[in-house]
Design a protein around this nucleic acid. Sequence first.
DNA 1: CATGAATGAGGGTTCATTCAT
DNA 2: CATGAATGAACCCTCATTCAT
Lengths: 197, 197, 197, 197
Amino acid sequence: MKRKGPKYDQIIDAAVNVIAIHGYHQSQVSKIAKQASVADGTIYLYFKNKEDLLVSVFNEKMGTFIEKTGNELKGKSSAVEKLLTLIEMHFNLLNEDHQLSIVTQLELRQTNRALRAKIGEVLKRYLSLIDLILKEGMEENVFDRTMDTRLARQMIFGTIDETATNWVMNDHRYDLPSLALPVHRMLVNGLSNNAGS
Amino acid sequence: MKRKGPKYDQIIDAAVNVIAIHGYHQSQVSKIAKQASVADGTIYLYFKNKEDLLVSVFNEKMGTFIEKTGNELKGKSSAVEKLLTLIEMHFNLLNEDHQLSIVTQLELRQTNRALRAKIGEVLKRYLSLIDLILKEGMEENVFDRTMDTRLARQMIFGTIDETATNWVMNDHRYDLPSLALPVHRMLVNGLSNNAGS
Amino acid sequence: MKRKGPKYDQIIDAAVNVIAIHGYHQSQVSKIAKQASVADGTIYLYFKNKEDLLVSVFNEKMGTFIEKTGNELKGKSSAVEKLLTLIEMHFNLLNEDHQLSIVTQLELRQTNRALRAKIGEVLKRYLSLIDLILKEGMEENVFDRTMDTRLARQMIFGTIDETATNWVMNDHRYDLPSLALPVHRMLVNGLSNNAGS
Amino acid sequence: MKRKGPKYDQIIDAAVNVIAIHGYHQSQVSKIAKQASVADGTIYLYFKNKEDLLVSVFNEKMGTFIEKTGNELKGKSSAVEKLLTLIEMHFNLLNEDHQLSIVTQLELRQTNRALRAKIGEVLKRYLSLIDLILKEGMEENVFDRTMDTRLARQMIFGTIDETATNWVMNDHRYDLPSLALPVHRMLVNGLSNNAGS
DNA sequence: CATGAATGAGGGTTCATTCAT
DNA sequence: CATGAATGAACCCTCATTCAT
């Protein structure tokens, strides 16, 4: 199982393309192969099966993104700043690749439990980044220290994800990155230590 | 196309049951028919096709719920109170019917775009309830009047939905209704008019 | 899984037909369905899968034959006579249905171990008939009582089978039933108690 | 098309090995190549195609055996003695190479008609040896001169082959060579000129 | 109204073979 | 001579839907 090489990337990109245009259930392996300009069988030299290909699509795109985001966060000094960076990077990623946004927000969700479990594994690393921010904010006494971290994480991820999904479902008709700031403000408010107010 | 009768309800309930237990992709029409104690063909006397059945499942269960929620909200005098009621009722609904929670939070999402679009139509009525609360809160000057209502709605729905989904994915291992209060607190904070602080 | 009905027989007969004409590896389910004038899917109402169909073909044809043979043997009074009846019935069966002979002697052998194991199960009942004849002949002191029964059975079955296979491989060019007598003579000689000679 | 060289033998041996262990249908060209420590493509420098390889396997192993058997027979003075030698050598060959016995008795039979026809060609030389023995025995007036030679040959080969196949199917659990004598006795009896008895 | 036997389209995957290096 | 990456044809089975009874 080769996991590198130009054909590997071709196939990943073709998969994003085909899924975005035709939808998950109309993305036959043969269609992806054609789009990637390789033979059907070639896909199985690089991926164990179709599910492996789809997981890899998510992994390649999100894995890199999560890493980049993690690195970027290190350069920020406060939890509030880090949260803004996270949201901005998330929205920018999707905005820079509309096809990818369709795939991750809509198409890759209509899969069986097994596939989503594997996608969930990748997502966990993203959720960990959120947890780190929350922890730091609570240590800084900027976020409410009595908060249930899990709930806070769900609010952050739920809000970001719902915002992104709505944007995609509205055919990218408005500007997503510019929503980072207001979303950030709402979230910071929601998480804030309001003890003194 | 009969839309009423004892068999209609039998089929709807059987569908929830089968989907919750076997998962969306293992819920063949014949299996639902068997569970409902009717013949396969009978399903097509009550529903146009399988998609129509699935939409109807969502419609029947959520439609009633949305109506009940709307009525309940009328009895509350403030936006903050209404939001709490909304969250509580949402969490209670899912908590009272674990099978339904599996179906709506996990299984019914792994469907094609067309089906989800129709489900989205039903959801709009729910989102309208949220919008009404937001509007009222802003008029009361309790919620930030400069907020983008759509974003606020997405935060509310995204947080509630993500919280519910996580609860289901964790096999209902903890108590969902008791999360209504902390979720409510976070959301109210997030939405609040903090102008003076 | 229906195991009876006109369609069941149609499919079995179509399978024999298609396999005899096109060969085992060119006998696709769709081809058999077409020959049986049913839809592809109908085959799966009567058979679990393709292997089940093939085993059933053998079962239906040989099962009946073995039963008939067993009954016929009861009417014969000596082991020698019974052996002749067995050989004659075996050769007559194949002679009366050339297509079946192609299927059992040539095509059904080029299958995987699993399928052949199941076919072997059916064959065991036939081999038991041979064992009964041998036992009787040894009790009558007509067959050599010191013989290894298994070897004797293998000689009988091996000879009959090889004779039949050669006949099929020679395109049924000569008359098989008329070989029953000389084959019988050789076998009886081979099995005889020659103690006194 | 090279038909000689160390790689040629490596491939032949690898084929026997792989087929015996994994079975005919799990013996892909790539697996045989790997076992032979050559590249897939290299096989096509030595064999026209997979079928040619399989025929060659049979040819190489049986060809040598048939020659050796033929030579050995020359040293025996009577047909009866020759027949014993043939059976003993046949059983010894299989007993000395269990993997080969699996391949020739079980695996190589589950092939298409074309391949078996070619294997039949090789076998003809073996059957000729039997014919020679029969002819000699009839000339010696030891075997029945009125016998149908083809039937006699089929009895001999059918019995030997069936005995060998059963031994393999019983996982070589008993000693095959020691069956040569009783098999020989039965066959000689079967073939004998019993005119006087 | 209700039945359930019958339909038939559609796709992921394997693997013998080729050929550029 | 040798390699091994790439090719692409081929097929079993499922299941939503229909319709004669």
